[in-house]
């Protein structure tokens, strides 16, 4: 293993929607064992950048590399199989399936067990057990048999995170995981992210608006503005820089 090869890298990554450039030549590399916060005002292109990395959108130009291999032309499922894991900002679940079944499907995907046609899924006790453990971890055990679509918003966010954890990816991509959660639910989510961070082989990308969260968790901040990467560095350094203050962080900083 070559430690200098980043687990994830984007080179001049660009997408245009008609005339609008939503992500503009973003070049950035992410090393294993790091947590990078991605910040920027609404509409800056953070979610779109994630969509380009995990394959929900096809790039207009530039590359996405996983461990040095170009995956720009691969579909989302192939990138997930190569170790990318994604939680969505807008909750994106299997609404008519139970909470447990949602998680079990993610566990099953991770185990690569989906292509078995003539066995029973209930016979995969190992997968059901693993799903049960994750259910406890995100504190949804009492909602096990509730269909996902009937959950309150905060619980849907938790389930979204549960699906990401179940995938056991090398790169965790969280897109505003605490948005819309009640204050008492946030610590559990931060605790989970903190635990993941302690594993030195994992890489975490976190889009987050709460600056205190960013400050306590991130070892690095990158700032997107109008689709372009305008700052990249250690939290203190980035927060002090004048372009960032002018571009976006100004008011939030006075508040923080």
């Amino acid at each position: 293993m070559n430690a200098t090869v980043p687990v994830l890298e984007t080179q001049d990554l660009t997408i245009r929607f008609g005339g609008h450039v939503a992500v503009n030549k973003v070049t950035c590399a992410f090393q294993p064992g790091t947590l990078t916060a991605i910040v920027g005002p609404n509409g800056a292109g953070k979610t779109t950048y994630f969509n380009l990395i995990s394959g929900q959108l096809a790039a207009s130009a530039g590359q996405v590399l996983i461990r040095g291999k170009d995956v720009t032309r691969l579909p989302a499922s192939a990138r997930t199989q190569r170790g990318l894991g994604r939680a969505f900002q807008l909750t994106n679940l299997f609404p008519n399936l139970t909470v447990f079944e949602n998680i079990r499907l993610a566990v099953q995907a991770r185990a690569g067990a989906g292509l078995s046609l003539f066995t029973l899924w209930t016979d995969r006790r190992d997968l059901m057990h693993a799903a049960g453990v994750i259910l406890e971890r995100v504190r949804l055990a009492d909602k096990r048999e509730t269909v996902a679509g009937a959950l309150p918003h905060g619980d849907q966010r938790k389930l979204e995170i549960a699906l990401l954890i179940a995938l056991e990816p090398d790169v965790f991509m969280f897109d505003e995981p605490t948005a819309g959660m009640s204050m008492d639910e946030v610590p559990n989510v931060l605790e989970i992210i903190g635990e993941l961070k302690r594993d030195a082989s994992k890489t975490i990308l976190l889009v987050e608006h709460k600056l205190d969260v960013v400050r306590s968790l991130a070892g690095r901040i990158i700032v997107l503005h109008n689709g372009a990467l305008v700052a990249d560095g250690e939290p203190a350094e980035v927060m002090a820089s004048s372009i960032v203050r002018e571009a976006y962080l100004g008011q939030d900083f006075e508040d923080a």
């Binding site: 579909p75 499922s77 994106n92 299997f94 399936l97 046609l117």
Partner: peptide
Amino acid sequence: NSPFGSVLQAIRENEFRAEALGYPV
């Protein structure tokens, strides 16, 4: 009722998410 069958239902529910979980739809 197989693991495969459960993926089919996931695809019916939300093909986009099934793909994101790593199932080639």
